[in-house]
Amino acid sequence: MRRLLNTLFVLTEDAYLSLKNENVIVQVGDEKLAAVPLRSIEQILCFSYKGASPSLMGKCVEFGVNLSFFSPRGRYYCSILGEKNRNVLLRREQFRIADDETRSLPIAKSFILGKVFNCRWILERAKRDHAMRINVERVTQQSTLLHSAFAEIEGCSSISELRGIEGNAAKNYFLAFDDLVLRSKDDFYFEARSRRPPLDRLNALLSFVYTLLTQDCTAALQGVGLDPYVGFMHVDRPGRVSLALDLMEELRPVLADRFVLSLVNTGAVKPADFEEQENGGVFLNEKGRKVVLATWQKRKAEELTHPFLNEKMPWGLVPYVQSLLLMRTLRGDLDAYPPLMWK
Rank of each mutant, 00 (worst) to 15 (best):
L11T: 12
M132L: 15
R3C: 08
S55Q: 15
M1Y: 04
L304K: 03
R196N: 12
E166H: 06
Y320G: 00
A170Q: 02
E249L: 07
K343D: 07
R92P: 01
P228G: 04
T329W: 14
K84C: 08
R328F: 09
M1K: 04
V230M: 06
S79E: 01
T12D: 10
A272D: 14
E137K: 14
S110N: 09
S110V: 03
I80W: 02
R73Y: 12
I112K: 02
K109D: 10
R92Y: 05
R258V: 07
E31L: 13
L45E: 04
E124Y: 03
F208R: 06
Q142I: 07
E62D: 14
L202M: 15
T140M: 05
E276G: 07
V235M: 08
A301K: 12
F9A: 11
V254E: 13
L261H: 04
V235I: 13
R92D: 15
L330Y: 01
W121L: 04
S18A: 11
N118Y: 04
V136T: 13
V88S: 14
E303W: 11
G231Y: 01
W121P: 00
G82Y: 10
Q142M: 15
L81I: 08
K115I: 05
K185Q: 15
L206F: 15
N85D: 09
G114F: 02
A151L: 12
K32P: 01
L5V: 05
T295P: 01
V269C: 03
N172G: 03
N85H: 10
R299M: 11
E62G: 06
V291N: 09
I122V: 13
E83H: 11
N203Q: 10
